[in-house]
């Protein structure tokens, strides 16, 4: 995944089954963002892999004042890349576990 300057990681162990998963997001390189992010620290949130889109969460983070509107796409992409990796890993590992 491209380095967007925004890091998104799992905030819990992924059991491969739950649709809702805890993620943690923080700014690693503020220079890559257009707007100046509030000095947030790490933002932990729950994401529903089946029902929600990264764009929804990114917009909510902008509405909450964590990021500037001009960075909503970068935040959404960062979340999307991590979600894609989680789903990819589930597809590969889950059949083996079963």
């Amino acid at each position: 995944a491209e380095d967007t300057g925004v890091r998104v990681e799992l905030a819990e162990e992924d059991d491969g089954q739950k649709s809702s998963i805890a993620l943690r997001l923080w700014v690693e390189d503020p220079k890559k963002l257009k707007g100046k992010p509030k000095d947030n620290g790490a933002i932990e949130f729950t994401f529903d892999l089946e029902k929600e889109t990264p764009d929804d969460v990114a917009q909510e983070m902008v509405d909450a004042g964590f990021f500037h509107e001009s960075d909503v796409k970068i935040v959404a992409k960062s979340i999307r890349d991590r979600v894609a990796l989680i789903l990819w890993r589930r597809e590969r590992i889950w059949p083996i576990l079963q």
Partner: peptide, 27 residues
């Protein structure tokens, strides 16, 4: 802890806490 802050937006809960020093990229 006092360092953790909870923010709600559009019904979603965001828990904000300091990023561990080890995870911040050297500027």
């Amino acid at each position: 802890s006092s360092l953790t802050q909870v923010v709600h937006s559009a019904g979603r809960r965001f828990i904000v806490s300091p990023v561990p020093e080890s995870r911040l990229r050297e500027q």
